[in-house]
């Protein structure tokens, strides 16, 4: 039911009779933006790598902190300004706010068209690298004692297409569904900060900056941007525009192929591997379901 879907999704941007809520939202964002830009980009060396703190990282952290459900819970005056409605309006606004970035990316990718075509094979093959997560995360999840949640949690970085495939196949209430939701939510809440820090630090591994920038494209525009901008800030050997456009192209490709990767490769591989590994390294539990419920319901 696409019409119902888009109704609830876009309804918050309606301004009729809701001018105050909109004013609160956009002024809060304005204050965050001005504050973040005044602080500016901060870079410092830690061990073999660099920590790059971009204005966007300050913006996301402050945005979360001032939310009604975080600091607003304890500070009543803040809750009056940054209401729950502010967060609801911000959700579809995110899609609209991505437009300038999308245009900027297109304008960077266009002129470097021929370099991208040259690197075509690498772009295509690195899509399989997204499966690397299965080999690393699945055994770890089993050792932790997770059962079928591990399948949903470890199959991929779980942006929207994966969430769709897993919930479609197993249902959101299934162990697999809880697993995929866990990775999805963790990515939503921590992903930008995580990849913003990783992008600045990654050159310390000795992998080439172009390869690192392609890896930034994982199917989430904000994670990719945080990752590649920090990388570009930390690296001087490759032009900034080239790093950013390689990341954006890889992200676009993942957006197109990601669903099929999970459906036709990721999921068959992980279920088979689960069947092999679980009896060996999985922690025996006579009642796997009770375990699953405890893990999901948590503390």
């Amino acid at each position: 039911m696409p019409s119902e879907d888009s109704e609830s999704r876009w309804a918050p941007i309606r301004t009729a009779g809701r001018v105050t809520a909109h004013a609160k939202t956009h002024l809060t964002v304005l204050l965050i933006v001005v504050g973040a830009e005044l602080i500016g980009t901060q870079t410092f060396a830690v061990g073999p790598g660099q920590v790059v703190l971009l204005p966007m990282l300050f913006a996301v952290v402050v945005g979360v902190l001032v939310s009604y459900s975080v600091l607003g819970q304890y500070v009543a005056p803040l809750r009056k300004i940054v209401t729950e409605e502010v967060s609801r309006i911000s959700s579809p606004m995110l899609v609209i706010a991505l437009m300038p970035l999308g245009v900027k990316y297109g304008m960077m990718v266009g002129p470097s068209f021929s370099e991208l075509v040259q690197a075509g094979p690498a772009f295509v093959l690195q899509e399989f690298g997204n499966l690397g997560t299965i080999l690393i995360a699945l055994p770890f999840a089993l050792v932790l004692g997770l059962k079928r949640e591990a399948i949903g949690g470890a199959v991929s970085i779980a942006r929207e297409p994966t969430l769709g495939v897993i919930t479609d196949k197993y249902g959101i209430e299934s162990p697999e569904g809880r697993g995929v939701l866990g990775t999805y939510l963790t990515g939503t809440v921590l992903g930008t900060v995580f990849f913003g820090l990783l992008g600045g630090f990654a050159p310390a591994t000795g992998l080439h900056p172009l390869a690192l920038s392609m890896a930034c494209g994982m199917g989430s525009a904000s994670m990719m941007t945080a990752c590649s901008s920090s990388l570009a800030e930390a690296v001087s050997a490759v032009p900034e525009d080239q790093l950013l456009s390689f990341a954006a192209t890889s992200n676009l490709l993942t957006g197109v192929t990601g669903l099929y990767m999970v459906l036709f490769i990721g999921l068959p591989v992980i279920t088979r591997l689960y069947g092999v590994l679980e009896p060996v390294i999985g922690r025996g539990d006579p009642e796997p379901d009770a375990d699953a419920v405890r893990d999901a319901g948590g503390d």
């Binding site: 690498a122 772009f123 093959l125 690195q126 899509e127 399989f128 690298g129 997204n130 499966l131 690397g132 997560t133 299965i134 080999l135 690393i136 995360a137 770890f140 999840a141 932790l144 004692g145 997770l146 949640e149 591990a150 949690g153 470890a154 991929s156 970085i157 779980a158 809880r178 697993g179 866990g182 990775t183 963790t186 990515g187 921590l190 992903g191 995580f194 990849f195 990783l198 990654a202 591994t205 992998l207 080439h208 172009l210 390869a211 690192l212 392609m214 890896a215 930034c216 494209g217 994982m218 990752c227 890889s250 893990d295």
Partner: peptide, 22 residues
Amino acid sequence: KLVLVAVLVFFGTYFGSALISH
């Protein structure tokens, strides 16, 4: 546990792709 798994997934995806690209 799921948060830890997710963090490993982040690392795995990133370095898996970076290694192949490289």
